[in-house]
Every structure is written in structure tokens, then in C-alpha cells.
Design a protein around this nucleic acid. Structure first.
Lengths: 340, 340
DNA sequence: AGGCGTAATGTAAGCGGTTACATTCGTCAA
DNA sequence: TTGACGAATGTAACCGCTTACATTACGCCT
């Protein structure tokens, strides 16, 4: 009840004294209750409650050479794709005794490597990293991290430990195939922040075009600048100026797609007849847009949840054999590509 | 150079032995270099580098009864308003020896209270919490947190410690005044997730209407459901069905505004003539939309950066007298309210 | 030359838990 | 009744660092 003495720092010692046992017994009822007698266990639980005891994570980490922290290293704070992943991660961590420590690499491999080192120093319970494009040194660190490591966002053939995501290459091919199936013959490509992950999407796009014997012409517009809706507008403008024959576009993400749609409207291009649009990720707004915009749905929240679950399973020894979890994707057709 | 022995755990002991000094000296050169002789200091620095030593944060926290953690408690992961704040926070923390620990209350005051307790247990370097609507117990905890506490997102009269944000009430009044100044006489209000913060925006809206002698009629549509673009469409549909006289709307945030715009387009309402639209926050997409959408710009990144800075200042004793930093806001007129 | 002050470093006691090992206690078989 | 054994609990070392205090070394003054 009297939980307000956080500042006075109720320690395990206090709990032990209050009950009349040793701190070891208190520690045991917290870590493996089954070895302490029910009577004592109950008294200790009551004391913990009434004193408002909360364990000190630093002390615990120091003594057990293992912290409760699950480290998460992502490229970007503000990209809402990662916000969804984080949502999944936090909700999966909730109710466990773990806590999350977040680091942002800002799409810089060296910065990521450094974060890995710093995180590893805390002997984390597990580590979640995005993608498969780590530096050599980072790869080495992750391979012998001494804790479960989960790569998210992508699948690939050689996980350091475990992996949960989907194939960006396949997803891009499927989206492109969709455009072609809808009768578009001159599809273009809009890409921003062309990191390795988005490059794989570009490969998928190109390969699918090639498979259909379609020339790409000048219809691939990319930039290294970070993605935004405004940028989507700019890229479409560029594209239409350079390659007016373009009859559809596959956008690397939904922000670009939305911006492209606005720009198309400004140019009085009719969607989907003059221009088909397909985004990537299927953020919530795509369904609400006018016209609604087709996109490739990805399972971001599930990725976050799944990653945490993989770690918890590994920790509890109940891990499965599967090293790679492929969550797949789903091309969602809407009005922007002649849907509905 | 040989930085790869993270797993072998290079400790301060190793560094000390390598140089031939005591661990105390190593600790000192890390915490207050000025008390150790330059010669020794350099040798230690070299050893740290060559052994790849990284301090153990748990041990440090335990020994110094003060961790390097800046705790941040926000209501939501996925709301991109907070993503911008986080961006500011992380960029301000970068380069310091602090780290960020994030907690999400999911808009539940009790959950927030609990997070505060847990965070305080780690004796954080500082604490950042959102808003001013804490439970009684949480308030008490924050008042005697024993570390700098910064409330962000809002200003109010009684900070627990320090505060950086703006007045939601004033911002809403200004937006409403803008609509009225643009000639709209029957403005409506769209709100989702009506928590105390958005309630204050509603008050501002109402008071401004009253100041102009305008009846609000049935033009206030709110819901407790979380905000989304789709919801913006629904709310506008409801609003226009119930109060067809509505000639403008002030939306609690930009997602709603965007959804409302799409719905207006579906209903063939001309923007800005049949319907004026003003959003809130001025996310990037508002400028790119077709038509571009007016909004109230808020300084979210600056809020995050500023909050961290306030903590760092307090920690270094260089804090100013000002307890409250008002970052203000800015009504940005665009085509959706007859701008440009 | 002896004494003293100061700067630089060392010593050792924690910080709050965990855990291997020791001890105690009750129970049951002989 | 006694000894053995397992369950429950206690003892104490230790995790890696910080820091108050003790010690040493050195230069300077009288």
C-alpha cells in the first residue's frame, strides 16, 4: 500500500528484516519461488507489497551478469514503419520482467556497430537489430553475442541467430506483377533513401519487368534523401517530365505514394486510368485516401511481437528449430490500381 | 584497436593492471580527469582504447547511486507526434554519456504512475514526462524525484520541476480565430482520443466561438477512439450529416484533417469554398496535400531537444531560473483555408 | 635540515542484489 | 531412539565500479 517510498529506496534487506529471513531467501522467492516454503513465500510477498519494494535493476544485472534489457537497434526514430514495430515490441514485453532499450543508427552502419557494442556491454537478455546489412565487425559481435539475437524486417539466408521478416525482393516483384496484371505496360519506380533494403526492392521491380520483357526506360526515379510526402510529389514530377509515357508507379513506401498521388491530381492525371499507383507497407491512410491507394501490406507489429517472442523462447529454452520466420506480405488492391 | 572482446568483458581492473595503477585511478580519469596527472591520464586513455574497454553501466549505477539513464514516459508509440519528440530527444542525448529509457503509458494514468515508479527505481539522471495530467501519487513521486524532471508537450502553471511546451488552449483558439477571420461562420470540431490534452483544445475552440458570438450547434464531433485518417473521414461524414451547415472544421490533429479532406472530396465538397479545413501539428504531409492543408505548427523536435537540454543543465548546475519554456505555435495558412 | 602543505595515487568499504556452499531442521526407516 | 537424508534457510563471496579516507612523494619555507 504504502508505495511512496521509492526515494527512500526500499531494498531487499528491508524486506528480509521485515519478515525475519535472510536476503537470500527473499532473492530466491523472487527468482525461483518453488524452492522456498509456501508460508515464507507468502509472508515475503506481503512484505514486498506493503513496503513497496522494487528490485534495483542495476544491482540485479551486476550480480547475475545478465540484465533484463532487450536491446533494439533501428535505423530511424521518425519513420512510422518502425513505430509500428516498436508498438509490437513494447506490447510483447509488457507483463514480462524485461525492459526495452532503444538505439537509433540513423541508417549509418558504423553507428549501428557502435550501438551493438554499447548494448552488448550491458549483457542484454536479447538483441533485436534491423536488417542484414551490418558491418563485418558488427556481424562478428552479433554471432557471439552471448544472448539471443533477432534480425527483423527482412529474411535472408544466413541469420546470425534468428530472423523474422519478409523478402523485400519478392514483395516488390509481387507489387510490380500486380501493376502489370492490371494492364499497365510502362510502370515506373519511385524510391527515396536508397539503402540496401530499398535496393532489394528495386531489384525485384527490375527483375519482374524483365520477366515480362518490359523496358524500364527512364522510369526509375530515386534519391538518397529521406522519404517524405513532399518528396513523393517531387519524384513524380521528375518522372513525368522525363518519361511521360509512364502509366503506373510502384513507390518504395506509402509516403511517396501519397505525395505522388497529390502531384498526379495537381497535374490532372486521372487515377487509376492515366496513372496507377502502388505504395509499400500499407499504412492506415492508404485505405482512407481518395482514391484509395493500393499497397503491399507488411506485418510490422507482428514482426516486433514475434521478435520479442523469439527472444523469450530462446531464454526459456523453448525455442523451436526454425531459425527464420517469414511473415510474408500481401498485395492489397485498391482503386488506385483499378481495384474495388 | 582490438575492440572485439566485448564478450570477454574487459573491466576496469584489466585497464588498471595494463597500466600499472589502481582501479581507483582509472575510475578517476573517467569521472574527473583533472585530478589525475596528465602522464597517467594519457597512458590510461591509451589502454582503454587498445583494450576496447567499455564501462559497465550497471556497476556504475550501483556504485554511484545514480544512473546515466534519462527516462522518458510518453502516452503512445505509434503517434508520430511523439516520434518527432523522440527524434529531438535522441539527437540531444547523442554525444553525451547518457542513455534513454522509454516507457509507454498507453494514455493510462495508472500505467504512467507505475512507469514512473519503475523508472525512479533506477535513480535516473532525469525524467521526461508528457503533459500535466498525472495521478496524485505520480505527482508526489515526481515532486520528490531526486532528479531533474521535465514535463513536455504542454505549459501549465505548476510544473513539478521544469516544463517545456505550449498552450493547447491558446493554439486551438488561434486556429479557430483563423477560421473565423477567413470568413467561416459555422466552424465545426473534429476530435479523437479525447484525453485531457485534447479537451483543452476543445475548450479553446469553444471559447473562441463564444467570443465571436457563434453558436456551436451540433458541430462538435468527438470520439474516444484513437485517431486515424479513416476516423477523420468518418467524423466528417457524421458531422456533415448532423450539421450540414458546417462551413469549416478544426481538427484535433493532422490525421483527422487528412481523412476529413478525403471525405470532403468524396462528397464533392469544394475545399476551401464549401469547407475550410485546419489541422493540428503541421506534419510534413500537410504542405504536400492537394489542396495543401492549413495547420497549427508545433515544435515537437525542439521540445524533445529542449527537454534534454533542461536536464543536462540542471545536472551541470547551469540551470536558468525559468521554470517554464513556452515554445509557442504558429498557425500556418494554406489553401484549405483560402491561403496562398 | 626538519616540518609542512599539496598533489597524486592507493586502499578498502560499500552499492543491492545472486548464488555456491554450509547449516539447520524435521521426517522417516531401522 | 537414533541416524540419514532431503528440504528450507542462512552465510558470505562476488559482480564492476565509485569514493571517502589514508598514504606517499615531493617541493618549499624557515
Amino acid at each position: 500500500m504504502n508505495k511512496n517510498n521509492v526515494n527512500k529506496s526500499v531494498t531487499m534487506r528491508d524486506v528480509a528484516d521485515h519478515v525475519g529471513v535472510s536476503v537470500a531467501t527473499v532473492s530466491r522467492t523472487l527468482r525461483n519461488p518453488e524452492v522456498v516454503s509456501p508460508a515464507v513465500r507468502d509472508k515475503i510477498a506481503a512484505a514486498i507489497e506493503s513496503l513497496g519494494y522494487l528490485p534495483d535493476p542495476a544491482a540485479r544485472a551486476l550480480a547475475s551478469t545478465r540484465s533484463d534489457i532487450i536491446g533494439v537497434i533501428l535505423p530511424s526514430v521518425s519513420n512510422n514503419v518502425f513505430a509500428d514495430v516498436m508498438d509490437g515490441i513494447y506490447s510483447a514485453v509488457e507483463g514480462t520482467h524485461h525492459s526495452v532499450q532503444l538505439g537509433y543508427s540513423r541508417y549509418a552502419p558504423l553507428s549501428e556497430e557502435n550501438l551493438i557494442r554499447v548494448f552488448l556491454r550491458q549483457r542484454p537478455a536479447g538483441l533485436i537489430v534491423a536488417g542484414i546489412d551490418q558491418t563485418e565487425a558488427a556481424q562478428a559481435l552479433l554471432r557471439e553475442a552471448g544472448c539471443p539475437v533477432v534480425q527483423i524486417m527482412e529474411t535472408g539466408s544466413t541469420p546470425y541467430d534468428r530472423m523474422i521478416g519478409f523478402s523485400h525482393y519478392d514483395a516488390a516483384r509481387a507489387a510490380t506483377a500486380h501493376l502489370i496484371a492490371q494492364g499497365y505496360r510502362r510502370p515506373g519506380f519511385l524510391g527515396a533513401r536508397m539503402d540496401p533494403r530499398t535496393q532489394r526492392r528495386l531489384h525485384g521491380f527490375r527483375d519482374e519487368l524483365r520477366a515480362h520483357g518490359i523496358e524500364e526506360g527512364k522510369r526509375i526515379q530515386t534519391t538518397t534523401r529521406p522519404s517524405s510526402v513532399t518528396l513523393g510529389s517531387h519524384l513524380l514530377a521528375q518522372l513525368m517530365d522525363l518519361a511521360p509515357e509512364t502509366d503506373a508507379i510502384f513507390c518504395i513506401n506509402d509516403d511517396l505514394a501519397l505525395g505522388a498521388m497529390f502531384e498526379a491530381q495537381r497535374r490532372n492525371l486521372r487515377i487509376p486510368d492515366d496513372l496507377g499507383i502502388c505504395g509499400f507497407n500499407d499504412m492506415e491512410m492508404m485505405a482512407a485516401a481518395e482514391p484509395s491507394i493500393s499497397s503491399v501490406r507488411t506485418f510490422r507489429r507482428e514482426m516486433g511481437e514475434g521478435a520479442v517472442q523469439l527472444i523469450l523462447d530462446a531464454l526459456s529454452g523453448s525455442a523451436t528449430q526454425e531459425k527464420i520466420v517469414d511473415l510474408g506480405f500481401q498485395v492489397i488492391q485498391r482503386r488506385s490500381t483499378r481495384g474495388h
